[in-house]
């Protein structure tokens, strides 16, 4: 497991019903691409987050599949509709099987 993985998510505290809000997410992760070599010339194995999903009360907002070409500390910005009060669930899936979660509640 990559060490020091910490998700950060920015969601407004409240919104009016049906409003489109901007969500910004960042997770600290080295995103080792598998292309680099260490000092002895051995390839460093790939270790990335390969999938990110955002759901609101169980409904998908966005589902992103990532390849090694995504930068270190993957950052995403997107827009979501808020039909009612509820909770956003953010999930990151690591290559090694780890899953990182974050939740943010929003009021209407």
């Amino acid at each position: 497991m990559a060490s020091g993985v910490k998700p950060r998510v920015k969601v407004p505290k409240s919104a009016s019903a049906g409003e489109a809000i901007v969500i910004k997410t960042l997770i600290s992760h080295p995103m080792e691409s598998g292309q680099r070599k260490d000092g002895d010339g051995n390839p460093i194995p790939r270790s990335i987050i390969n999938r990110f999903t955002c759901e609101f009360n169980g409904q998908t907002v966005i589902d992103i599949t990532m390849e090694p070409a995504i930068s270190t500390n993957p950052y995403f910005e997107f827009e979501a509709t808020v039909p009612e009060a509820g909770e956003f669930a953010f999930t990151w899936y690591d290559d090694d099987g780890s899953v990182y979660n974050d939740n943010k509640a929003i009021t209407v």
Binding site: F56, Q59, T60, I62, T65, F78, E79, A80, T81
Partner: peptide, 12 residues
């Protein structure tokens, strides 16, 4: 490949 964005029903 870089990424695939799949938009769900709640994407504004």
């Amino acid at each position: 490949g870089v990424a695939t964005f799949n938009f769900g029903p709640l994407a504004a």
